[in-house]
């Protein structure tokens, strides 16, 4: 019992030590990322899947890092307004419609984008609120 207590304190100490070592940016990123994972589950996962794998030729996967990079300024608009028409993702053609998630706020879009663009093999770093607000102004 006593041993467990001491081990517990020790672990807490180590966690605190590690946490204090993280830069502010890392803390910010983690906050967006973990918030985004919850939003992904609620708004995206039904169609795009737990691992961003999509569904056959019906729903595109979220694993195309090149697409994510090239379309980075448009991603917020895709979520806010939906997406319709033809897409080429990982070399495959998709045609259909993604419903708009009009009920998501800019901060929620930033969180879910940070999650998606840093999961499933993507690694783009933080997409923050300011970025999303700027991108949303340029939606076509």
């Amino acid at each position: 019992m006593k041993l467990a207590f001491i081990t517990g304190i020790g672990l807490l100490f180590i966690v605190a030590l590690v946490a204090s070592c993280q830069s502010d940016e890392q803390v910010e990123f983690n906050r967006y990322y973990s918030g985004g994972s919850v939003l992904y589950l609620a708004h995206c996962q039904n169609c795009h899947g737990e691992k961003g794998e999509g569904l056959q030729a019906l729903i595109p996967p979220l694993t195309d890092s090149v697409f994510m990079k090239q379309n980075r300024p448009s991603l917020a608009c895709y979520i806010k307004n939906g997406l319709k028409g033809k897409l080429s993702i990982v070399g495959r053609e998709f045609e259909g419609e993604m419903p708009a998630a009009a009920d998501l706020s800019p901060i929620e879009i930033a969180k879910v984008l940070t999650y998606v663009t840093n999961s499933f093999g993507n690694k783009q770093g933080l997409i923050d609120l300011q970025q999303v607000q700027a991108d949303l102004k340029n939606c076509r």
């Binding site: 039904n46 169609c47 899947g49 569904l55 056959q56 019906l58 729903i59 419609e97 419903p99």
Partner: peptide
Amino acid sequence: TTCPSICPVMHRNML
């Protein structure tokens, strides 16, 4: 076919 909510999950599993 245009079901945005549970159908993709159902048919991912049905597959």
